[in-house]
Simulated assay, not measured.
Amino acid sequence: MGVLNVTPDSFSDGGRYTDIDAAVQHGMCLFREGAHVIDVGGESTRPGAERVDAPTEIARVVPVIRSLFAEGVPVSVDTSRAAVAEAALEAGAVVINDVSGGLADPRMASVAAAAGCPWILMHWRGHSREMQKLALYSDVVAEVRDELRERADDAIAAGVDPSRIILDPGLGFAKLPEHNWALSAHLGELTGLGFPVLFAASRKTYLGRLLAGPDGTPRPVGGREAATLATSLLAVASGAWGVRVHDVSATADALAVWRATGSPKFLGTRTEDK
């Protein structure tokens, strides 16, 4: 999944693709580089971000989605609002990527059910301004697993086809770095729920903190790609259905190498060790 933020304030590429032509060009580039779907978002969900209203979000994403659809590019819409999802689906989107897991807008479940499209339910505890205050866990893996199971159960009860549900652990959303690492290390707890799992660590702050310089300054966003590749490969080797990334080309190359081994569990295993 290639990331396409058409926002002025996203943490990694805010302001770069607010022009429709630039956004469509970038989306086409990501698709040519190997993305299976382009995830178009019109509202930043970085920690501390202010919300925009639905008409603003729709005005940002719909022209881009419509243009990409016309070029035959599969598109998902990154939104937690039912009205935005409806407008995006009408414009040609084929997936709803909901960072709130259906909690921000109770009507989202009926939209997803009626559309019959894949619905990505991310683990979420609150909007950007408050979410880091909610990063309180006794056992983050168990609690995220149980809360995601509840989101899936509620979606199914609302009429969503279970085969259309995808889960996302929500790295960085109401999570401290240690929570992100624990979820990455125990991704099997989430894949064990029986739903596809999307892994989205690309360029996130906890990677920058891991790679901090001698003075403790986090590695800038542009220097986090190798770490992103490592997290993506480890996630796929742990059973993730997909990865959401900014750098599609490098990820596609790394996954091609991974597939060439012929073994989905090759990491840490040699033939002579079996």
Rank of each mutant, 00 (worst) to 15 (best):
N5E: 06
K175V: 07
L183T: 00
E178G: 11
L234H: 12
G194K: 11
H127F: 06
I165A: 12
V111K: 05
L255Q: 04
S232D: 06
A182T: 02
A250Q: 09
P214N: 02
I38H: 03
A85N: 04
D19S: 01
R219P: 00
S10F: 03
R16C: 09
H26S: 04
A70K: 12
V160C: 11
G262K: 12
A226E: 01
S110H: 10
L30A: 09
D153L: 14
T191Y: 14
L233R: 01
V245P: 04
T251E: 00
I20F: 00
V141H: 06
G216H: 04
V61W: 01
E225W: 05
T79W: 00
D21I: 10
W258L: 02
G239W: 03
Y137H: 15
F31D: 07
K265I: 09
C29R: 13
A174E: 12
E147R: 06
S238R: 11
S80V: 05
L190V: 15
D215C: 02
L198V: 10
G14K: 03
A59V: 15
L148G: 13
S44Y: 05
R46T: 11
T269S: 11
P220A: 05
V24N: 14
A82E: 06
G216F: 04
V144G: 11
D39C: 09
M1H: 08
M28F: 01
V52F: 09
I166N: 06
E272K: 02
I120Q: 03
L183A: 05
T261N: 07
I166R: 07
P74M: 11
S138H: 15
G262R: 13
R107A: 15
G42P: 05
I20S: 04
A54I: 05
A157C: 05
L267A: 12
A174Q: 10
E189Y: 09
R259F: 03
T269I: 13
G42A: 08
R164A: 07
I165V: 14
P74A: 11
L30R: 04
A152W: 02
T191G: 11
V75K: 07
E150P: 07
A109R: 09
G239D: 08
A85W: 03
L134C: 06
Q25T: 09
V197A: 01
T191D: 13
P47A: 03
S100H: 04
E272P: 03
H36W: 04
D78K: 10
D21F: 03
V73G: 08
S184K: 12
A54R: 00
E147L: 01
L267M: 15
W119Q: 07
A155M: 13
Q132E: 09
G223M: 03
T205W: 10
A260S: 15
G15N: 07
T231L: 00
V64C: 11
L193Y: 04
E272W: 00
G14E: 01
V40I: 13
E86L: 08
R244I: 04
V248P: 02
R66A: 15
A87P: 13
L207C: 01
D253R: 15
L171G: 14
D153C: 10
A201F: 08
A260W: 02
L233H: 00
L183S: 06
S263N: 13
D105R: 12
K204M: 06
R151A: 12
